[in-house]
Design a protein around this nucleic acid. Structure first.
Lengths: 218, 218
DNA sequence: TATAATAATTAGACTAATCTAATTATATTT
DNA sequence: AAATATAATTAGATTAGTCTAATTATTATA
């Protein structure tokens, strides 16, 4: 139906719209797609022809309803496959992104639904990112950045905003796992370093950069 | 590394070499690939440039050792995914081919190995086709066509040579399943119709066409 | 507001994979 | 062996997705 390339553009546009607002700039898209701007212009024109995006010369683009549906279905597949890779095959949460990037393009509604059933209808992927349901509905997260909490506050670690293997490895090493409860034991005035109490009373000190990449429910 | 198209050509050449002898004709390849002959000529030249096949103008092509390795690895992935789809997700054996055609192109050695482990190292796919091991070694089958057996002979149903959904559905309906023991109760002189005794003593009558598409171990 | 800086587009070209039409090889048959 | 039929190749074109270089819009700044 759609090429892998188109699907990747749609996903990229979707994510940019989520984080940077409605309209997506050609240059931003070029950056995340790892191509040069003229390629994006061409592609946007083609996709506009298929009613996947709206495109106005030099004004940027946004997804149509149809484009959004495709994007969300790709994200659903990506996250379900990540759950499969971690929960069933035993991959680490830092290893699954590139594989899921490939698997997300497999086309079969029956497959996605059976996979969802096999995995017992997970609500989030191994990084805590919510999985859209079969109708494309994405549960609105109530999580906030750990960095926005105050001394003494408590929360449950529900997700990350930095998905890099480097960061995920750091968390593994530090002993911070999804679902753990975290209490803030102190915030250093000078450099915003956080002292956290993890489950099992273990205390760890993390930088603001780290606190700013952790999502918690409170 | 290789495009999907290249991988599909390699697989097709491999299968043609298996069944029709060493050298593969352009027209035969065009037919199974569903493209026109000039496309094949072009592709063979490109693949010869990458040392995946040997190509001699108007003399046909065959796989190099490198090409054979890639082909076998694709077949391994295809068959492992078919086992996954049937055994883990509950698909019927007639439904998995097209999905596995997509999944076979996913690139990750770690994935294939973990999948193999997850499935407990299956030796054959849901149609009885042998699964190459991690080194690309394909066990030589000792199965023969049911149609080559004589009245009174017995065997175990180990595979099919017709993989069409229509044939597989027919077998389901008739109650013939992989692994069942089958005894030949009679062969009609006139039209080579076979009367078979299935497990549970049930008797069924099948045409020569059917007997000629069933593999048995004896 | 005019100028400079940045962003986006157009123009023209490339590669992979395909096509049709025309041509050349190979194989078959009289 | 010559004539015919079949198979394969070449030539030239097309589409998707990309590129660089040149040009045009837009935005920011002096």
């Amino acid at each position: 139906m759609h090429s892998f390339t188109e699907e990747n553009y749609l996903k990229a546009i979707y994510k940019l719209q989520e984080s940077n607002g409605e309209v997506v700039a050609t240059s931003a898209l070029a950056q995340v797609m790892g191509v040069h701007a003229p390629s994006v212009t061409d592609m946007l024109k083609r996709m506009a022809g298929k009613k996947l995006v709206t495109y106005q010369k030099s004004k940027g683009s946004k997804l149509t309803e149809k484009g959004k549906q495709v994007a969300v279905s790709i994200i659903r597949k990506h996250r379900l496959w990540e759950v499969f890779l971690v929960d069933k095959l035993g991959f680490g949460w830092d290893e699954v992104h590139d594989i899921a990037e490939q698997m997300e393009h497999i086309q079969s509604d029956a497959l996605v639904n059976k996979l969802d059933t096999f995995l017992s209808f997970p609500k989030a992927d191994p990084h805590g990112d919510p999985i859209p349901d079969a109708n494309g509905v994405l549960p609105k997260s109530k999580s906030v950045l750990l960095s926005t909490l105050k001394d003494g506050d408590k929360g449950t670690f529900t997700g990350v905003t930095d998905h890099s293997a480097a960061f995920l490895n750091y968390l593994d090493k530090t002993g911070v796992s999804l679902g753990d409860s975290i209490k803030i034991k102190g915030i250093e005035e000078y450099d915003q370093t956080f002292t956290l109490q993890l489950k099992g009373k273990k205390e760890v000190v993390v930088s603001f950069k780290v606190a700013n990449s952790l999502l918690v429910n409170n």
